[in-house]
Design a protein around this nucleic acid. Structure first.
Lengths: 206, 206
DNA sequence: AGCGGCTTTTGTTATTTATCAAGAATAAGC
DNA sequence: GCTTATTCTTGATAAATAACAAAAGCCGCT
């Protein structure tokens, strides 16, 4: 994961002069030009190769990320095994959102599962925006509404009793995902082994 | 579920003159006296008996509720069976939060599993507060941060592979809950049958 | 283009959990 | 306080899924 080295003044030239994340927020709810400038100044593009860790538990520098390109997953290590807790794609905000506001440091790891282009945003900037630009609380609220709905869906899908119906639900709600990334991540997300998932998929195709 | 009939002017007298939900919000982040008065005017105490439905999918009048007393669960009917998706207790905000902002009507049912005292708040009031009193967006953001964390935990616990470790996690994170409500709800929340849960509990106590 | 590693499939056996059933214990409501 | 409901336990069997293993397919990288 390396910061793209570019002269500061044209860091956003290939994105039309602004950080994609400031435009993303502005599109959710209009924010002032000062807020946009503040975001442009303290966010940064970065690249994460397939398999690379974007966040490791215990490391400093909590951030949000906007995914411009690629697929990213979050996972927790439980009893020596990885449990994939979420999988996100383009135009979604990810990060150690768990840490927002309250709670201790996250035990969650974040990993690129495709080569990714991201925009990073330090969490201190988020706090600063909330206090300096009141309208950013509206943006924050709406982003959180969305994140909440996504988390609700994750909580729901994993409670569906039969593995096949969980897979079916995933295909219904996120049709492209199941054929985009390795089965092991889908299987872990659905709480089954990849062998079982493979068998379910072949059952379905008959 | 019946509205307590009281003269309007002293509806909140037994709560010290204000709606508990306006005080709850004010405690999260200070809101103006006008905002408090507006909340006091359009929220209402209500009672729900054990087993009573607080919300049924398809019904009108989306609301938030503050639980003053009792335990409430949300569930979804999947393939003819109820799946309990959350269980909340005193001093928590519940409701058809899924509907906030975006998304279609919730298929989620909400039911009292103890005799409950609640404060109801129409969702239209929430919208009004967001536009009329900017500081309420800060409250909304913080409530959603909390709701998000709770949803994350629900998503996580249900992905722990072994039923016994799921139960262990529940006991660790919410020690009082497992001995407060019938096993069937706990079992459904953990994605197992009540018989299996009973056996797990007895394994543990030896 | 070809090598090597990752991914998927398929098979077999072991384990976990569900299902069905019935009795015992506990709690709710009058 | 008593009666009835509900809740919890325990047992036996069936079904789903995990675990282990190994081969085939695909894919990324140089």
């Amino acid at each position: 994961m390396s910061l793209l080295k570019q002269p500061f003044e044209d860091r956003w030239s290939k994105y039309g002069g602004h950080s994609p994340i400031s435009l993303f927020f502005h599109h959710i709810h209009p924010i002032s030009q000062e807020a946009i400038a503040r975001i442009d100044a303290s966010t940064f593009p970065l690249h994460a190769a397939r398999g690379e860790m974007i966040f490791k538990p215990g490391s400093k520098g909590d951030r949000l990320y906007l995914i411009l390109k690629g697929v990213v997953r979050g996972y927790i290590v439980e009893d020596g095994k990885e449990i994939t807790t979420w999988i996100n794609e383009e135009n979604e905000i990810i990060g150690t959102i768990r840490n927002l506001g309250l709670a201790g440091p996250s035990e969650e790891s974040i990993q690129a599962i495709e080569n990714c282009e991201l925009i990073g945003m330090p969490y201190e900037l988020v706090e600063e925006l909330y206090t300096t630009y009141p309208e950013s609380n509206i943006v924050g609220r709406k982003v959180l509404e969305d994140s909440y709905r996504a988390a609700e869906e994750r909580a729901y899908i994993s409670r569906i009793p039969a593995a096949e119906r969980r897979y079916k639900r995933l295909v219904e709600t996120r049709p492209n995902l199941a054929n985009r990334i390795p089965l092991k991540y889908i299987a872990s997300y659905l709480g089954i082994t990849l062998e079982t998932l493979s068998r379910i998929r072949n059952r379905r195709s008959i």
